[in-house]
Design a protein around this nucleic acid. Structure first.
Lengths: 147, 147
DNA sequence: TGTTAGTTCGCACTCTTTGCAGATTGACAA
DNA sequence: TTGTCAATCTGCAAAGAGTGCGAACTAACA
């Protein structure tokens, strides 16, 4: 995703207005690596700008996504997550706490794939799931406590 | 997924009852390759057993999934889809009509993956998305019709 | 400073799925 | 065949995640 300053340019160039709400969201998303949900972003935004609406958060996020400035990701935890990293990458999700991290995969061009006949493929996404360190150690702690 | 007869055994062995509703759903899912949603299955079931409730469809599907007899898949089209194919496989979804097909991938063990440090990975799923033949030809037809 | 088109916000509403509780009914024993 | 009891079924309410809409507001530019 571009920097807040660049996005300001881009928005104006596209006939879109740059409002305080949008600037706030540009800032909250820029360099954000936690893959927040709209609700999480709304909480952060509300802390800095009381009164901002969840509707506006969804609106702006959708706009950014349709401009290709951020990616919508669905890791199966219910709510869509937003990722300002537009590099070619994939994700890993902790099935316990839902934490999401970026994953880079090389060599996918050498995979032998069977069953795509008839499809014109536009995208391939790989989602790893497992347990993050924090949740793994929590489990160990609880196990020790139990026995 | 096991055959309806085998599932009957398994259910009884696990202290679960085999009701007409469940038998119907066993039959509808066995060998089913369309990856139906609960709603779609409910429609089929209703045609054969008027009065069956959507709640029961969800219940039974969830039971089968927790017994490992079918997989819950989320291709980002809104509703969860159910897959009786429990082989190690992946999926491709048509971004236009939502059709889902099974895909077999070999060589994934040779991928170079960066970013999984700290995670104990339990699963990796690959989701291809693109346009199916039907939708591709529809697009062509419409384009021709337009001129 | 005025005009106007783009925005914001809140509310109602859709969609998918789950929780609950009373009415039913398999499964097994007598 | 009958009885018992836990498992099930069904309908309805409700939760979570988004989206459509319209009135009030405001950024952008003349």
């Amino acid at each position: 995703m571009k920097s807040p300053a660049e996005l300001t340019e881009t928005f104006r160039a596209n006939g879109l207005k740059v409002t305080p709400q949008r600037q706030l969201l540009f800032g909250l998303m820029h360099g954000n690596t936690v893959h927040p949900t709209a609700e999480a972003l709304f909480a952060e935004a509300s802390a800095r700008m009381p009164g901002i609406s969840l509707r506006t958060v969804y609106q702006t996020l959708t706009d950014l996504a349709s401009m290709g400035e951020l990616r919508l990701i669905d890791v199966g935890t219910g709510a869509t997550r937003f990722d300002p990293n537009t590099d070619d990458h994939h994700h890993v999700v902790c099935s316990s706490c839902g934490e999401v991290r970026d994953v880079y995969v090389a060599g996918s061009d050498r995979l032998k794939v069977d069953g795509l006949d008839g499809f014109r493929i536009e995208e391939a996404s790989i989602l790893f799931s497992g347990t993050c360190v924090t949740c793994a150690s929590d489990t160990v702690s609880r196990a020790s406590a139990r026995g």
